[in-house]
Design a protein around this nucleic acid. Structure first.
Length: 579
RNA sequence: GCCCUUGUAGUUCAAUGGAUAGAACAGUUCCGUCCUAAGGAAUAGAUGCAGGUUCGAUUCCUGCCGAGGGCACCA
């Protein structure tokens, strides 16, 4: 039993003794006070139960404290009553010091849980479309999805990372139309020897040209529709070849980005492979869930408080909705033991997923119950050159490379070989972007300020990386002096700072982030923790042979680095070896 | 018109119905023989408006105002 559980149990007992027996231990809430001045743990039970008992909160608090004093809580230094009736617990310093030393000498797995060991969760995210740009929206989805995946993993559950890629549809036809008709218009050409990046960029430009033609030119529009049909039927060898080649390029390129971002998918689903399954389901439930209307097959969402959507068009083609239906039943066919299936998309699709979730629950309650949709906002730009780019679609790599350039400038004064400088600036740039996305609640827009990203100070990814690198350097130096070891028994009256208190909280923080699917709790905690370490670093000389406390301080540093490494892993941020 | 999301310091974000609403950047002021100053310490500054529920509301409910998104054959 940990401290939290022991305190909770003691509180439940105390409540029962004062005539407030509760059958629900979760109603007894133990919180971290906003300020450490108020203690290490606090509870508001006296405020919550005062009315029920008909006494004032403070009077009840006094009764509860009297009972708690009788319980033998040897790790508690002091119990006090404050404010309107909060009961605050101050834990003995030596308890924190002992835990920190334990963490430092542990296997580095600190913070991981095993309570979901037998669970299996699928997370679908990133979802870029072949023939189109991998843009900053995909970057958002990837950062969020990867972090959610890692949070789930940290509970001991098995995660299946899935990526759904739209390899058929009008966007492909637009691109192929442009290749057939407008490839001469484009300033740059590609050849066999072109890099994959160049090839994909060329493809993206072709899509834009085709897309514009589709809007402005009625003849082109007709031709594109015809190509779309040909792609679907695989009836034209020339088109088939262009299709296969373009698809291959895109997928090869996506693989390089996934590797750069640190994601390894277990499953790739393709629109082309799920359409049939979706159509089957729609047919099966025609008349029960879906109805015919104006020649199309629709789901009449109004009857269920959601929007009405078309599933099969009047031309007989399945829409995206139908493909989603096929996709999600396929997920459960492949993994029948899935306990949860999370889908992460941009929030413009929120209403639309409400419809889909409703449909899922009607055609297959299992899928409906286990599927959860999460949405992220847009990545937008406050100021600077990145907002003024022509067009409003920014490629993910161009953002990363812009930031990387700034980082490279910044580290140019340091002694790095060219290869190391390249690796370090890549890790810092990606860390900076991921942190910006994950520091705030998932769902709302992220304003990326290029001016702030240049400074890398304060509330930023590089700040966290820097604190970790510093700790690593200290530990490196500590190897040079003799390790005398540190035994907490030798220092029963040790004084502990904010740093140790925060380190010990890590498992609770991560548990909450996991329960809420909210990586921002981890991000906020790590900033606080890094600040505490930097203050610790500024006021103490950690490695010092003449200092009796040196061994302890080294242990604290080690524990800090363990938490930092694990926390940053949750966010998908790498720690450079040097900065 | 209807539906969803959202409104917190000058700016970008926090805050499981609780205590003095936290950070960071920008501002003002300090800290350089030291394990990387991409750092530390100090200082000033905010809950859109109006009601309601509650012992207690940034948080829940209603209305208004502002912002973003979505509303049948695109994804």
């Amino acid at each position: 039993m940990n401290m939290r559980q022991e305190l909770t149990a003691a509180l439940v007992t105390a409540l029962a003794r004062v005539g407030l027996a509760t059958t629900d231990p979760s109603s007894v809430r133990l919180e971290y006070p906003e300020s450490l001045d108020h203690g290490d743990y606090a509870t508001n039970v006296a405020l919550a139960y005062a009315k029920k008992k008909g006494v004032s909160p403070r009077a009840l608090a006094e009764e509860i404290v009297a009972e708690l004093e009788k319980a033998d809580l040897e790790f508690v230094e002091q119990i006090t009553i404050a404010g309107p009736g909060f009961v605050n617990f101050k834990i003995k310093d030596a308890v924190f010091a002992g835990k920190v030393v334990e963490i430092a000498s542990g296997d580095g797995e600190y913070g991981w849980a095993t309570d979901s060991k037998s669970k299996k969760v699928m997370v679908e995210y990133t979802d870029p479309n072949p023939f189109k740009v991998f843009h900053i929206g995909h970057l958002m989805s990837n950062a969020v999805g990867e972090s959610i995946s890692r949070l789930v993993q940290s509970s001991g559950a098995e995660v299946v990372r899935a990526c759904y890629q739209g390899d058929v549809g009008l966007h492909v036809a637009k691109t192929i139309w442009a290749i057939q008709n407008k490839r001469q218009d484009l300033g740059f050409k590609i050849q066999e020897s072109s890099t994959i990046t160049e090839k994909v960029k060329w493809l993206g430009e072709m899509y834009v040209i085709g897309s514009n033609a589709f809007e402005d030119d009625a003849v082109a529009q007709k031709e594109i529709h015809a190509i779309n049909k040909q792609i679907f039927e695989k009836s034209d060898p020339e088109i088939n070849k262009m299709y296969e080649e373009g698809r291959k390029w895109s997928l090869e390129y996506f693989d390089t980005i996934y590797a750069r971002l640190g994601t390894k998918f277990n499953n790739f689903f393709f629109e082309s492979e799920v359409a049939d399954a979706g159509v089957q389901i729609v047919k099966e439930f025609l008349g029960k869930v879906f109805i015919e209307s104006e020649g199309a097959t629709i789901f009449k969402g109004e009857d269920y408080g959601v929007h009405t959507r078309v599933f099969i068009t009047s031309n007989g083609l399945p829409t995206y909705e139908t493909k989603e239906l096929g996709l999600n039943s396929k997920k459960f066919e492949l993994y029948p033991d899935l306990d949860e299936s999370v889908i992460i998309t941009a929030n413009e699709q929120s209403d639309y997923f409400k419809v889909l979730l409703k449909v899922f629950s009607l055609v297959n309650p299992k899928i409906g119950d286990k599927t959860k949709h999460m949405s992220h906002g847009m990545l937008r730009f406050a100021s600077g050159k990145m907002s003024s780019r022509k067009g409003n679609i920014i490629a993910a790599e161009s953002l990363i490379d812009d930031i990387k350039e700034l980082v490279t400038e910044k580290i140019s004064g340091r002694e790095f070989g060219p290869e190391e400088a390249e690796k370090v600036s890549d890790e810092i740039a990606i860390g900076a972007i991921k942190y910006t996305i994950l520091r705030q609640a998932v769902g709302s827009d992220v304003i990326f300020d290029s001016a702030t990203s240049v400074s890398f100070e304060g509330d930023s990814g590089p700040y966290l990386q820097y604190a970790a690198v510093r700790a690593g350097a200290v530990l490196e130096k500590a190897k040079q002096i003799q390790d005398t070891g540190f035994k907490i028994q030798d220092m029963p009256s040790i004084q502990v700072s904010t740093l140790e208190r925060l380190i010990v909280r890590f498992p609770d923080i991560i548990a909450r982030a996991r329960a809420e699917y909210a990586p921002q709790h981890v991000a906020g905690y790590l900033i606080q923790l890094a600040g505490a370490f930097n203050a610790f670093y500024a006021t103490n000389v950690i490695v010092d042979e003449k200092e009796p406390l040196s061994a302890y301080r080294v242990a604290v540093t080690k524990a800090f680095l363990t938490v930092m490494r694990n926390g940053l892993w949750i966010l998908g941020i790498k720690i450079p070896e040097r900065m």
